[in-house]
């Protein structure tokens, strides 16, 4: 993270107390995972070498150990059972070695927090399903179609094909001179579930120079808010795009919301899509946060 990005993140959390709370909670999750010995040895060693260099942070880790011990002494396991939590933190820390993220585990806790939030929230996916991307999409009639989807759950197609790949076969070839439909890349994400989701790398959205539109399809387990809105941000950075009053479409299991945007708004990097729901009383809550990376080809 560059100085400018760090400053931007700081400005954002000063102005938005909710973001600040998310950062603090992400830090707690990291420290709790360490205290409960859920970090793999090499990550644990990194944590000790960098995070524990500050006296205040050492005290925080010590407190987390005491809290875990207090829960165990009462015969209740601490939250984040090892079998589930480890993959989450493996993702958190594993990502730090990804050169494109360039978020090496440095002495700056801010860095850790930014990444922690990024993964913390992104891990809120339904357990026991491929995190980040689903292999199949549902047609409006509820039937399940198997479209060519790459390992990241990406469908890339001209816009009409995004509606139905099969129909294209029966369609006559476009007449010469007719305007070609825009090239659309679709990324299917799954929202909801527990934050201790199973391990999986963040979804990757490869974008070719010819791609004109991006469609982010978010599958929800339930859609019980009065209305929804969403914001797409660069991880640790500013807002890229937002959508207001979006309406989910009912699916066979749960609902689906599709967010469309121009592909040119996405440069290479990591992104966080936050879905917010407005309840009947007007209260707004974060419903899910999904992460993905964009790779420009």
């Amino acid at each position: 993270m560059s100085d400018a990005e760090r400053s931007e993140l700081e400005r954002a959390y000063f102005e938005d107390p909710r973001l600040f709370e998310q950062l603090v909670q992400a830090e707690n999750e990291l420290v709790d995972a360490y205290a409960r010995e859920l970090l793999p040895p090499e990550r644990c060693e990194r944590f000790e070498r960098h995070y524990l260099t500050h006296p205040a942070r050492r005290e925080r880790a010590r407190f987390a150990r005491s809290l875990a011990a207090a829960l165990e002494s009462r015969g209740v396991p601490p939250a984040a059972a090892p079998a589930r939590a480890e993959p989450f933190w493996r993702r958190l820390l594993g990502s730090l070695s990804r050169p494109k993220l360039a978020w090496a585990f440095s002495a700056s806790l801010l860095l850790v927090c930014a990444v922690a939030v990024w993964f913390y929230t992104g891990a809120e996916r339904r357990p026991r399903e491929p995190a980040g991307a689903e292999r199949a999409t549902r047609e409006p009639d509820g039937g399940e179609s198997r479209r060519p989807v790459n390992d990241s759950g990406i469908e890339t197609a001209r816009e009409p094909e995004a509606v139905s790949a099969e129909k294209k076969k029966a369609r006559p070839s476009p007449t010469p001179g007719a305007k070609a439909a825009p090239v659309v890349a679709t990324l299917v994400l799954t929202a909801g579930g527990t934050r201790s989701a199973e391990a999986a790398p963040p979804a990757v959205l490869p974008l070719a120079a010819s791609t004109e539109k991006v469609s982010l399809r978010l599958n929800l387990r339930e859609a019980d808010y009065r209305s929804y809105s969403a914001v797409l941000r660069r991880a640790g950075g500013g807002e890229v795009f937002s959508w207001r009053r979006v309406t989910p479409k009912a699916a066979k299991s749960g609902a689906t919301i599709t967010f469309a945007m121009p592909a040119r708004r996405l440069t290479e990097g990591d992104y966080v899509l936050t879905l917010k729901g407005t309840g009947d009383a007007g209260e707004v809550e974060d419903v899910s946060v999904s992460l993905f990376s964009v790779e420009r080809k």
């Binding site: 209740v76 396991p77 601490p78 939250a79 059972a81 357990p127 527990t194």
Partner: peptide, 10 residues
């Protein structure tokens, strides 16, 4: 709040 056990944390 911090206890684990059966069911998802969320």
């Amino acid at each position: 709040y911090y206890r684990g056990g059966e069911g998802g944390q969320i």
